[in-house]
């Protein structure tokens, strides 16, 4: 019985951790959208900033990946 509750907590926790990915999605979308808005205003400057765009996306996404990792750890490692 106790084991079942622990199991349940594990899966609930994993599900809650998956919410973090939503934040990452918002962040990445925000970056990409703002980049597009800026690029449409000044297309000539956009090409030089793609590296910055990807680095920003990578940083924003990393945090989401951390929460995904927590979810995976809860499901498979704990």
């Amino acid at each position: 019985m106790e084991g079942d509750i622990a199991e349940m907590g594990k899966y609930i926790g994993a599900g809650l951790a998956a919410f973090g990915l939503g934040g990452a999605g918002i962040g990445v979308g925000n970056i990409a959208g703002n980049f597009l808005a800026g690029a449409l205003r000044n297309p000539s400057a956009a090409a030089g900033q793609t590296a910055t765009l990807f680095v920003g996306i990578a940083f924003a996404e990393a945090l989401g990946i951390f929460s995904f990792l927590i979810a995976l750890l809860l499901m498979f490692a704990v």
Partner: peptide, 13 residues
Amino acid sequence: VSHSIRLAGNLMA
């Protein structure tokens, strides 16, 4: 940490 977990996490996911 983020450098490695990002790559592994993305592919694993």
